[in-house]
Design a protein around this nucleic acid. Structure first.
Lengths: 213, 213
DNA sequence: TAGATTGTTAATCGATTAACAATC
DNA sequence: TAGATTGTTAATCGATTAACAATC
């Protein structure tokens, strides 16, 4: 297989840190700062400065000796690397409390995403309006995803339904799934999956705690 | 410093996988299965069987050669290791869409957690009922956390308020924080913090996608 | 110039995997 | 017994860190 000269295989763990750097840069921009350094970023994030420089070096040279990184420039570069220098339309499946909160969430648009449709299989919910979107039946899923050219979806259904929904999403052409149901789903190679399981994080922390009561 | 004989320092990354194992065991229990193997667990989770055996070996010997692991027994053991063989009372700060969804979420109780109070600083929200709980003003935070002996809290406020809320929680005695605001917060040593940032996960995935539109 | 900070190399550290004796 | 699977060791693999020449 031919490999492009500039597309080395960058560790996934490095990719996973770029959004964190971007988040920190957002804040620095809000503070009206112009320059930062790997040392300052590291301090704020609890990461070593060497790691930040090493991570960024996979993609190019974004800093200047002596002065550090121009915040706006580095921000824009990372946005391009992560492909969030545009707006990704997204589908939400599940219009329960969580799905509703996702549709309402104001934090997607400023960071490159927009919920453009929401689905549910409960007749009581279909037709309901959420933040200007109409809850659609699952029978509309494939056609809507095609019509909106949706590549990214979020699953907010009960765990029993999550695998079936994932399968439908992939069949409809979705290539990246953020799954809120506490179950590992199986998808074909090449389809991206990430998980959000608050209880897993809580359990991780309680390992270190001694119960009071 | 004196170190107990049986409390070796177990890598944090191993602790982070235990909740995933627990989640898989929950499913196997629901399927009425009695025994499993490191191979089967690994298949389901996309993890090598060797890693699962290695991880578990940090805590004891839970399996039997030839037959694998008794599911109910392993489940109970991991629950004890993670200290979720009890119910942790939790506070939610922020009664917006997300906070509301967290208070309503049915997935906490079966896995060791229960939201017992919710706070907001918006007079329009204070007094509101959410799933049987009354939204309380921030001025009540310290006394309520003490009264309920709360050690775990979730932050669901806008990012501008997150650091201040975290500081108040720690002062009130909270030892573990799950932060939904997209900002790295600073807390004293010994206080656990975990982050949930859906956008970071989405951006991680879009790195691997080629935009269609 | 002197001070600061990058990008990169090499060394260190830690995590994952392969392999297998033990044994159910 | 034969087959399966554990727990563990040693080897491999990969990620992090320390250090520094280059240079703004």
């Amino acid at each position: 297989m031919i490999r492009m000269g500039n597309s080395k295989n960058i560790p996934d763990i490095v990719i996973g840190r770029l959004p964190i750097y971007l988040r920190a840069l957002n804040l620095l921009i809000a503070e009206q700062r112009e320059y930062t350094s790997s040392h300052e970023l590291g301090e704020r994030l609890g990461i070593s400065s060497a790691q930040i420089r090493k991570d960024l070096s996979h993609f190019g040279e974004f800093g200047k000796q002596g002065t550090g990184y121009n915040i706006a420039y580095l921000h824009e570069q990372i946005r391009q690397i992560l492909h969030v220098d545009r707006e990704w339309p997204m589908a939400v499946v599940g219009a329960g409390d969580l799905g509703r909160a996702l549709v309402h969430y104001r934090g997607f648009v400023p960071r490159g995403f927009r919920v453009v449709c929401v689905f549910d299989n409960d007749p009581a919910r279909i037709g309901e309006q959420i933040a200007g979107l109409t809850v659609q039946p699952m029978s509309e899923l494939a056609s809507q995803i095609a019509a909106h050219r949706i590549q990214v979806a979020m699953i907010a259904v009960p765990l029993e339904a999550a695998q079936e929904v994932a399968t439908q999403l992939v069949e409809a052409g979705v290539e990246a799934i953020l799954n809120y149901a506490p179950i590992t789903i199986s998808v074909p190679d090449g389809v991206q999956v990430q998980y959000i399981d608050p209880v897993a994080h809580l359990q991780h922390m309680t390992y270190y705690l001694t119960p009071k009561s």
